[in-house]
Computed example of a mutant assay.
Amino acid sequence: MTSIQNSQTSEKMANTMVWLTASLLVLVWTDASAAMDPQKVFKYYKAMKTKYPLNNMYSMALRIQGPNNNEDPSSFFQGLDSVNNVKRVFQQDRVFVSDRVMAARPRPNEWTTDHAEARVANLLRSWYNQNQLNRDWILFYVKASPCATKCADPKHPGNILGEIAKLKKWSRFAFVFSDVFQPNPNNQNAQGKVFQFTEEDQKNALKQVAKRIGRRNIFRCNNNTCVKCFNKNGIDTFCISG
């Protein structure tokens, strides 16, 4: 083998190593957050829904002291603003912001709708503090899972993927939803048919979210349990149907 061939071979090997290293860094960065215990997430989810019994579409973020403090959710929620305070801010079409709670509803504008979760995620920077980022954890809740054709579509200019990626600032967080999103059944096309997302659509939407925040801490919760959406077999059917 000539020196030129040796040089070319070495260059190809070096390029391959760079590509592999970059790929591994992406994987590590994407799933760098600590895995949250579903039981712990469920306790705080239930307490949140009790403290803030809100209807219709909304998003809420909680900054919870941790990991060793306030394991009893009731002690965390006792000092927080009342649901009536949150509702008053909603009536003014603003985002509710306090030291421990953020919440918003969707806001229609002339051309589109500002998503509730994007409005909340946009303001997470007000909680950025290195001590808090390492000590506290975030429960980020949105009533319905991100939709496949806008919220979780990386090609759509109105997607929320860049906003929710801000959750990675914290070493511990949980992204939680309770309903699997489907379009309003009153919105019919010219043939009188209602468009519905398939399970494959729902899978693709969750995969796009996972690309931004990792797979470990995406949950669907209801009155009985919180389920991790991603497992060794792929995506749990609980997170894409019903």
Rank of each mutant, 00 (worst) to 15 (best):
A210Q: 12
P53Y: 08
P38E: 11
V89N: 06
P38R: 11
A34N: 14
W170K: 00
T9K: 15
V89F: 06
L123C: 07
A61F: 02
R216L: 13
N122K: 15
N159H: 09
K232C: 01
Q5L: 15
F42P: 01
Q202G: 02
T237A: 13
A14P: 03
S82K: 03
A152E: 06
V89G: 02
F181V: 06
A174C: 07
C147Y: 08
A190M: 11
L80C: 05
E199L: 11
C229Q: 09
V176D: 02
A104G: 07
K150G: 00
D93A: 14
A47R: 13
V89M: 02
L206W: 08
L27Q: 15
Q8G: 00
A152R: 07
R94H: 06
Y45P: 00
F175T: 05
E71R: 15
P154M: 11
R220M: 09
V101D: 12
A174P: 02
A210I: 10
K155S: 10
V227W: 13
V41K: 01
G214L: 02
G158L: 09
F173S: 00
S33G: 09
P67I: 11
T237G: 08
K228D: 08
Y45W: 12
K169E: 12
L167S: 01
I235K: 10
T237M: 10
F181L: 04
L62A: 07
K168S: 10
N204E: 12
V28T: 15
T112D: 14
W170H: 01
K168I: 05
K155R: 13
R172Q: 09
W29F: 11
K203G: 04
L161Y: 03
S171T: 13
K40H: 15
L20I: 14
G192D: 01
A61L: 00
R119K: 14
K211W: 14
A34D: 14
N70K: 06
L62E: 03
M13Y: 13
F140A: 03
V83I: 08
N6I: 08
I235Q: 12
L167H: 03
Y45H: 13
I164V: 13
W170N: 00
N233K: 13
S59H: 02
F238N: 09
V95A: 01
N69T: 14
R212G: 01
A174E: 07
N224M: 12
D31A: 11
K143T: 07
D153T: 03
K207P: 00
D37L: 10
S3F: 06
C221A: 05
Q132A: 14
F175Q: 05
P183Q: 12
G214E: 01
M48K: 12
V83R: 13
G79Q: 10
V176Y: 04
F90E: 01
S126M: 15
K207R: 15
W29Y: 14
A148F: 13
N134L: 08
M48T: 08
F96T: 03
V209M: 03
V194I: 14
Q130I: 10
N159R: 06
K150C: 04
I235M: 04
H115F: 10
L161Q: 04
V209T: 06
M60A: 09
R94W: 02
W29G: 04
I64S: 07
I240T: 15
S7M: 15
F96M: 04
V83L: 05
A22F: 10
